[in-house]
Amino acid sequence: MEVIVDNNMNLTVYGFYQKQGYDEEKSVAVATFIEVCFSGAGMMVGGHIHRGITCFTGEIAFLPFGMSHDELYRQLHDRATFHSLSGRAVTSLIAIMNPETIALTGSLVDSGDVDIIRQESLKYIPEMHMPKLRLLEHPDED
């Protein structure tokens, strides 16, 4: 039996990718927005987990949002500012990796948020470059 030990976001995106049954290598991401945590992402680039040189890939809470981490945390947990911030994080993933799909997950995201976050991203990203955005309700299954 093969066993893989990695961080939770890398394993989530790996499982999500495997369940899609792609015929060719694709790039996908899973972005998580969880209560009492900062945002993070897992990325598959060309069919392989992307970790980066120091395994810092996916730490989207460190994007330059122009505010302290305390303020970022507060605003991510505020429904009035959540969509704008999560949309900018998704926009950054799109601009950097141009994925086929981004799955959104975490207790701060519900099904109604996906289209709002898509609209926030479309403020910056042309429609032709927008990936599929979808809700991943049960990431532990992946």
Rank of each mutant, 00 (worst) to 15 (best):
A80K: 10
F65V: 12
S68L: 09
V30G: 02
R74S: 13
E35L: 04
D142F: 08
G42P: 02
F65C: 04
F62Q: 10
S86V: 13
I116M: 11
L133D: 08
R79L: 07
A103T: 15
V109L: 11
H138C: 12
T57W: 00
E59L: 01
L122M: 13
K19H: 10
D142W: 02
G87I: 08
L93M: 14
F56P: 07
P126D: 01
C37D: 15
Q18I: 11
V109Y: 01
G58M: 02
H50S: 04
G52C: 07
S39N: 07
M1I: 05
D110S: 08
L122V: 01
Y73H: 08
K26I: 07
K123G: 02
P139K: 02
D70I: 03
D6L: 12
M128N: 03
P139C: 01
V90S: 03
Y14V: 07
G47M: 01
L133C: 07
D78F: 05
R88F: 12
M9Y: 06
V36N: 12
C55I: 02
H83P: 03
T105P: 04
D142T: 15
D23P: 10
S92R: 09
N7P: 06
Q20L: 14
A29E: 06
N10L: 11
A95Q: 09
S27V: 11
D113Q: 14
I96Y: 07
C55Y: 03
L76I: 08
D142Y: 06
D113M: 13
E2N: 10
G112C: 10
D110P: 00
M128R: 06
V5I: 12
H69A: 15
N10W: 03
R134M: 15
Q18A: 15
Y73R: 11
P131N: 05
H48P: 00
N98W: 01
M128H: 01
